[in-house]
Each structure stands twice: as C-alpha cells, then as structure tokens.
C-alpha cells in the first residue's frame, strides 16, 4: 500500500443502479475511494448507503453501471470472489455468528491459515483485547461494543486492502464509539476504508472524503474538512432531515 500514490483510486463506482425487488434503490450512484484515506458515505435513512456497500461486495446485484476495484471490473463477480480479492465487509447488523465462539468466528473469517494470517491475528487481538479475554465465549453473549470489535477484527484478519464498514457507531455508547474511532484510525494504516456513518462526530473524526447520498444518488461530495465548515449542508443532510423522517 505504501507504493500507491496519495491520489490513487482503489475503488471506483460508476453510475450504478441497484434494485431490491421492485424498488429502485441506487439510481446511478458514483463515488470512489482513494488510497490511504477514509471515505465516508452520509445520507438519510433509505438514501441507499447500505445498499451501496452491499452492491460493492456483490450481495446485491447491480443492474447497470461499473464497479472498478484496483483497475478491474467486479460488478459481475460473486460475493466470495470479490471478498477474496481483498475486500472486507462489516454489515450494519455486524453479521456475528452468535452461536459460534469468538474463536470460531475468527476461524471462519480466516481464508488462509498461514504465518502472515497468524501475525495479523496477533495484531488484531492486541488491538481488541476484549476478544482475547472472551476467546472461548459464545459470540452471542458479547456486549454490543465487543460484537462490533469482533466484526471489524474478522474483516481485517485477512489481507484486506479495502474495508467496507456499515454504521459501526450504531447503537453504541459514546465511550465505545471513541474506541471504534481509535480502531478505525489504526486500520487506516493498513487498509483503505469506506464507511457508512450517520454519526457526524464519528464521520468527522475519521473521515477524509465524504459523499452525501440522497435518493440513490450522490448529492454532494468533497473533503470532510469542507463539510465540517459547511453547517448548512450538515443540517440539511445530517441533523434536521433525520428529525423530519
């Protein structure tokens, strides 16, 4: 990752349309993720943020448009193929296997079990000490914050160069949100991150670039610093509009 230039784009989504049943959720969405940066997708409920991530990982089929990852079109690939290319995914509900132990959750996540994976596992467990503590416990008995840690840990234990995380702050206490911010800031060093986030505090703490989604399209985009200064934009898409829902 060090070899890549600062402006290099690792993921490019171009005019993608996605349907869920008969509902046209993504209506020509375009965004990208630059290397060595955290890109944040922001938008109201139903704007299509989660759908965008699921479309990238392939869990939802796109009907039109291109998704280019490391210069390769992946929109026709199946989820497991996309994941093997080095894309990690943390869904909104975290996707924890609650009947399995923490250890088994991690084992399912490890695609290859070699020395490099073992090193990454050590590094990950160092980052999330709680997981080590509850290594043999059923994942379903973990707290919400610990589950989020486990979900992220599963995604970074492989050699991922792009990590898609869907609302990691959802339903977590503020102090745990800080811990998640901490974790993402450390992950940033190894992997590009695309984050769906509604919590402006979190988005502004970790994000470099932002895209605001509205009705399945990108309404605004730019540097997160610019968003922090633009209070009109914030209130339009983050604060007030949520109250309207």
């Amino acid at each position: 990752m060090g070899e890549q230039g600062v402006d290099e784009t690792i993921l490019e989504v171009q005019g993608v349309h996605t349907f869920i049943g008969q509902h046209h959720i993504l209506q020509g969405i375009s965004f990208d993720a630059k290397a060595d940066a955290v890109t944040v997708l922001i938008g109201r409920n139903g704007a299509g943020k989660s759908t965008a991530l699921k479309t990238v990982i392939g869990l939802l089929p796109s009907s039109k448009g291109k998704i280019i990852y490391k210069g390769k079109e992946i929109q026709k690939n199946r989820p497991f193929e996309i994941a093997r290319m080095g894309i990690g995914f943390v869904p909104e509900n975290m996707g924890i296997f609650s009947e399995l132990t923490v250890e088994e959750n991690m084992r399912v996540a490890m695609l290859v079990e070699n020395e490099a994976t073992a090193r990454r596992l050590d590094r990950t467990l160092e980052m999330f000490a709680d997981l080590k503590k509850f290594w043999k416990a059923k994942a379903g008995n973990l707290s919400g914050g610990q589950k989020q840690m486990l979900a992220i840990a599963r995604a970074i234990v492989n050699d991922t160069s792009l990590l898609l995380i869907d609302e990691p702050s959802k339903g977590l206490a503020p102090i745990i949100v800080d811990a998640v911010i901490d974790a993402i800031n450390r992950i940033k060093e190894h992997s590009v991150v695309v984050l769906v986030e509604q919590n402006f505090y979190m988005a502004s703490s970790v994000g470099d670039y932002f895209f605001i989604l509205d009705d399945g399209m990108v309404a605004h985009a730019g540097h997160v610093e610019a968003l922090i200064q633009d209070e009109a934009l914030q209130s339009k898409y983050l604060g007030i509009s949520e109250a309207e829902e």
């Binding site: 990982i57 497991f80 869904p91 009947e99 399995l100």
Partner: peptide
C-alpha cells in the same frame, strides 16, 4: 464451523470469501 456459520448468516459467510 463454516457450515454452522452459514446456518446463521449465509450472506456473511459469502462476504468472507
């Protein structure tokens, strides 16, 4: 273990490669 994981959440197992 993967089968048991799949019983709980197929999509997640796929998204893990």
């Amino acid at each position: 273990t993967i089968v048991r994981a799949g019983v709980e959440d197929r999509d997640m197992v796929q998204a893990m490669g």
